[in-house]
Simulated assay, not measured.
Amino acid sequence: MTHRTHTPAHRPHTPAVTRLHPRLVVSDGPRAIDFYRTAFGAEEIERYTGPEGRIVHALLRLGDTVVAVKDADEGDPAPPSLGGTPVIMALDVTDADAVAEAMLRGGATVVYPVADQPYGQRGGRLADPFGHLWMISQTIEDLTPEEIQRRTDAMFSS
């Protein structure tokens, strides 16, 4: 058997990605869907349940994005049972303060308060009642990539 090296002209076919979305595992699916509906204006697109009514898959639309939600089980633990999550959901919004307030009313907690950031965003980080982290931000200043890097350098040199 001859081994063939793939050059750009002989690259194997790579299947196209048709969709990528986060799948949030939560301890109480119906309550989580209500939270996301109230805090983010999420629209429920579909919901499938198991024999005991536990959510095995629900799809929510948040703006132009979809997020799946499912109840935790023995194969898919929720963040609190793992001691937290290393994943941060970045949510760009038109009013970071209003979204943060809606999250807090629904039981979220502040990790970093919403404030003006040197890189041209107003934002902060909150943990939802199910252990998922959300970085909420809105653009308040149009900056070039060079300006953002300069401000980032200054932020870390102080």
Score class of each variant (00 low, 15 high):
81 S>Q: 10
95 D>M: 01
90 A>V: 14
54 R>M: 14
59 L>I: 09
66 V>F: 08
69 V>L: 05
100 A>Y: 06
90 A>M: 04
57 H>L: 00
64 D>H: 11
79 P>Q: 11
77 P>R: 15
84 G>H: 15
64 D>F: 10
83 G>V: 02
83 G>Y: 00
94 T>N: 15
97 D>W: 01
76 D>G: 11
73 D>I: 04
97 D>H: 05
88 I>V: 07
78 A>V: 10
73 D>M: 13
73 D>G: 11
85 T>P: 04
67 V>Q: 01
63 G>E: 07
53 G>D: 10
100 A>F: 08
52 E>L: 03
93 V>L: 12
50 G>D: 12
99 V>K: 01
92 D>I: 01
82 L>S: 08
63 G>N: 06
59 L>S: 15
54 R>G: 13
78 A>I: 13
73 D>C: 14
57 H>I: 01
89 M>C: 05
70 K>D: 07
94 T>A: 09
85 T>C: 05
52 E>Y: 04
67 V>W: 00
61 R>T: 05
91 L>F: 09
69 V>T: 02
69 V>E: 00
56 V>A: 11
87 V>M: 15
80 P>R: 12
78 A>Q: 12
75 G>T: 06
95 D>S: 01
72 A>G: 03
85 T>L: 03
77 P>A: 07
75 G>P: 01
65 T>C: 09
94 T>R: 05
100 A>G: 12
82 L>R: 14
60 L>I: 05
84 G>M: 08
80 P>T: 12
76 D>Q: 13
89 M>H: 15
70 K>E: 13
50 G>W: 12
70 K>G: 04
97 D>Y: 01
82 L>F: 03
